[in-house]
Each structure stands twice: as C-alpha cells, then as structure tokens.
Design a protein around this nucleic acid. Sequence first.
DNA 1: GAGTTTTTTGCAACAGTATTGCATTATAAA
DNA 2: TTTATAATGCAATACTGTTGCAAAAAACTC
Lengths: 152, 152
Amino acid sequence: MASNSIKILEENGLSKTEVRKKVLNLFIDSACALSLSDIEAAFSKIDRITLYRTLKTFENKGIIHKAVDGTNHPKYAICEASCSEHKHEDDHAHFHCLSCGKTVCFEHVPNPAIPELLNGYVVEEATLILSGTCKECLVQKKSRISITETLE
Amino acid sequence: MASNSIKILEENGLSKTEVRKKVLNLFIDSACALSLSDIEAAFSKIDRITLYRTLKTFENKGIIHKAVDGTNHPKYAICEASCSEHKHEDDHAHFHCLSCGKTVCFEHVPNPAIPELLNGYVVEEATLILSGTCKECLVQKKSRISITETLE
DNA sequence: GAGTTTTTTGCAACAGTATTGCATTATAAA
DNA sequence: TTTATAATGCAATACTGTTGCAAAAAACTC
Ligand SMILES: [Mn+2]
Ligand SMILES: [Mn+2]
Ligand SMILES: [Zn+2]
Ligand SMILES: [Zn+2]
C-alpha cells in the first residue's frame, strides 16, 4: 500500500517526495527498528545526508521515534498513532537481540514508573532496554541443537 | 591515594603502567561516569588508541563497567567490589542529566526484574536509564530563578 | 499546463569516533 | 643487568554525523 505513506505525509504537512515515501514505507513494512545504515543499505541510491534529515523530520513530526537499545547506534521505529509533533507517546521498552542485533518495540511493556524526585535528582524520563535472544534466533538455535543431536 | 590504583592493578594481574595508574585514579576520584573524550581531555598526552585499549582491559577485568545512558557515547564508571573478570554485578540504573550531560551510577536503584520469557523472547538482561536534572544543575536553576525574582 | 516560489536533495568539505597492524618503548621476569 | 614479554603511540583506514551551498524537485499561482 503505497497510499499509506502518502496519507501520513499529507496529515503531517510534509511534501510528498520520493525519498520520504520510500523511507516511510520501509518503516511501515519493517518488523523491527532501523538504523541509518539499514535504511542506506535498502536504498543504495539515496544520499546519507538526506536520510539523516529525513529521519529528523519524521521524528519531529511524531511519525517515528528513537529506540534506545544499548548499542551506540540509534535505531528508529514507526510511532503509535497517538504521537504528534513534539509530543511522543512511545513510552515502551525495546528489546535488543544479542544474537542477530535486531531491535524491536515492545509496545505492551511500558517503561517503569519512577518517583519524580530520586536521591535529590529530578527524574523526567525512564527508559527500559531488554536484551537477550529474539524469537527468530531461538528457532534457529533449537533447530541447530536438534541437528547436532541427530549427528551424534 | 595513588596506592589504591596500584593495588587494584596488582589484584587483577595487570602490569602497573603510567597510563593505567592515571586512568584508574581518574575513575576512583570521579563522581560520575566518564566517556573516552572526558579521559582524553584530562590527560592530553595520552593517545586515544591506548585509552580505548585500557578501557577494554579494565572492563574485561571487572574494574569498570559500561554505563548506558541513551546518548550514543558509551560512558564508564568504577565497578562495585563484587565484580570480577567476565562477571559484572553492576545491575543498577544510571541517571543522565539532560542539562549538563553528566551520567552517574544509581547503585541503590536496581534494574527492574523482568520475566525470563516475554512475548516469546528470552530476556537475559534489563537495563534502566533515568534522565532529567541532576542535583548540581537543580541548585543552579534555583539560584538563577531567585536572581530573576530579585531583579523584578 | 506554464511559470514562479519554496522546499528538498545530493555533493563537497569537515569533525569526530573507532579499529587494526606494527615499530618503539616500558614493564616484568630471569 | 640482561632478556623476554607486554603496553604504548603512530600510521592508516573505515565509519558516523554535521554544515553550507548549488541543483533539482515539489508546491503554489495564474
Ligand atoms: Mn518503540
Ligand atoms: Mn554504574
Ligand atoms: Zn535475533
Ligand atoms: Zn546536571
């Protein structure tokens, strides 16, 4: 559905350029959060600098949000419908797979509630990162084990 | 106490070089987590590459641990006594000040407990990042407000 | 649809971050 | 003190992220 991305761009008052449509569709179709390199690899023709600016534009508009995953490389994922310009509502945990490196949104796991004042510090935000082995990698591990067992 | 760092190096079977003593003392004396640039700025003579390798060595030995703070720049802080080679015990939250950029360990705030299996994913670790305004920045803000009020 | 205005894009240049190989130097062991 | 071992600093390289500017594309006006 190419019209999906066009609708989002229109709703946010953004001009419907090829780059924006392509990048936004990639986010819509992607099951996991994407780094700049991921997007760059998907569209070899698009300039890196344009991608940086596109991501910033989308983030400001509440179309995508940053997913902090403990790596030093920011990842981005499509926002929930309730997000808008300068007011993100994506207050959920992110899962980072140590096996394949993929990061996914855990919309059903809210970030923990923390007292506003803690040890004399004003806490404005709490971010939860989960890491371990993702569904897909688990399946691969299991089938590898069963192969090993068969060979023995 | 310069002997403090020497003792730690000896206990971990590391040769007592000038770089290691200096960097380790900096960590011991520092109230907050340090980035590579912070350390580089403290000792202009020491080569960046040596610092990268020193940090990696210390981390592997359980002398320092990485403090994930949501920025894209890893920070490091001295470990709790219980940490050892390849077995870190620093399971606490980190606070990142949005005003001054400093990151501190919150040893008294444990990372949240999360079920090992969540949504079909195996969770091995949970990391909590808190962000807001630190003690020191709060004091500055308050005094700035009182000055403004006096001028009115 | 053609022409005009405005915005977006891609390139150049640059600063910062991170890694590896290797010769030199410092430390530890003999 | 001499020898063996390990750490350091430099060169080279790759990757990440930012800004200014001219060309191209999109939006707007008629
Ligand atoms: Mn998310
Ligand atoms: Mn810590
Ligand atoms: Zn995985
Ligand atoms: Zn602060």
